[in-house]
């Protein structure tokens, strides 16, 4: 059975906004459709009156790298991000997280914007964007502005963006510089829905000696109802030596301090607590090594 009636392909944001306005809440913004349309298939409600495809709006499709930052259009696909050499070396965790989403067919159409707009607490791309302290440019109620990414998340599956009214335009994030690096890892299970049991992105900056954490940003998901930084974990790292002992201590501490939940057919809270330790060890260790060597080659892409 059909999942939508009309299909529109605007070429500017204003055209897209006008279409959304015209349909009075009956239209949906669509990019790759790999979440929206599959969900529509799962539900038995009436077809969407209209879909507004934003993937031919140049502003949403851009991927601009400057000296220290990158702007990624909301319509950039996972495949584009994964194949981008600068992102691979300087926003490595983002490439690693986008690289484990689906297979090639999905990554070729699924967008980073869609990943964020869906507002799932453990979306892979989102987890990395949070650790990279990304900002998002949105048009909410006709107002265009930049927001810290985390402000877009109101609850599980609940976004500050109204998919029948608002647009997510692009993301901005700082690229890793000297003594900075990031890493992403996740734990999956071979059964059930393709959502991570737990994902973890870590960004670190080492001091000039390379022996201590000057700064750290860690995002572990799902812990709360929305994606968020694990600021207590970050605080435990700053100023500490970048050795195994620190990481081990922080991993232990985090296992006790964080309170993951049990999700049906996904994971028990106890298992997730164990995985907090495993993922922190694995991502922090890798990020430190990358920051030290200045070499970052994404791992696990495509698997």
């Amino acid at each position: 059975m059909k999942l939508w009636e009309s299909y529109h392909i605007p070429s500017t944001t204003s055209e897209a906004l006008a279409l959304l306005e015209r349909y009075q809440g009956q239209a949906r913004v669509v990019a790759g459709g790999t979440d929206l349309l599959v969900e529509a298939k799962a539900e038995t409600h009436a077809p969407f009156v209209a879909l507004i495809d934003i993937t031919r709006i140049p502003e949403l499709m851009s991927l601009e790298v400057s000296a220290n930052e990158v702007i990624i259009g909301a319509g950039a696909t996972h495949a584009q991000i994964v194949k981008h050499p600068v992102l691979a070396s300087r926003a490595t965790c983002l490439v690693e997280s986008c690289g484990v989403v689906g297979g090639p067919q999905v990554r070729n159409v699924a967008t980073l914007g869609g990943n964020v707009a869906h507002a799932l607490p453990a979306a892979d791309g989102t987890t990395s964007l949070i650790a990279l302290d990304a900002q998002a440019e949105v048009i909410i109620e006709g107002q265009r502005r930049w927001l810290p990414l985390k402000e877009l998340f109101l609850g599980p599956g609940k976004s500050a963006l109204n998919p029948a009214r608002d647009l997510l335009v692009r993301f901005r994030l700082a690229l890793c510089g000297t003594r900075q690096a990031s890493a992403f890892k996740r734990i999956m299970r071979p059964q059930g829905v393709a959502l991570p049991i737990l994902g973890c992105a870590a960004w670190v900056e080492l001091d000039e000696t390379g022996q201590h954490f000057a700064s750290a940003r860690v995002s572990i998901a799902p812990i709360g109802p929305t994606p968020a930084r694990a600021s207590e974990v970050e605080a435990q790292l700053v100023g500490q030596p970048t050795d195994e002992a620190t990481i081990e201590r922080v991993a232990h501490w985090a296992q006790a301090a964080l309170h993951p939940r049990t999700s049906k057919y996904r994971a028990t809270a106890d298992y997730r607590r164990e995985m907090i330790g495993v993922l922190l060890r694995r991502t922090l260790g890798l990020a430190v090594e990358r920051a030290r060597t200045g070499q970052a080659i994404p791992q696990g892409v495509g698997l």
Binding site: Y7, G33, T34, K41, V109
Partner: peptide, 10 residues
């Protein structure tokens, strides 16, 4: 691409 959920107009 997965043509089963790919709108033809896309």
């Amino acid at each position: 691409v997965d043509s089963c959920i790919y709108p033809v107009w896309k």
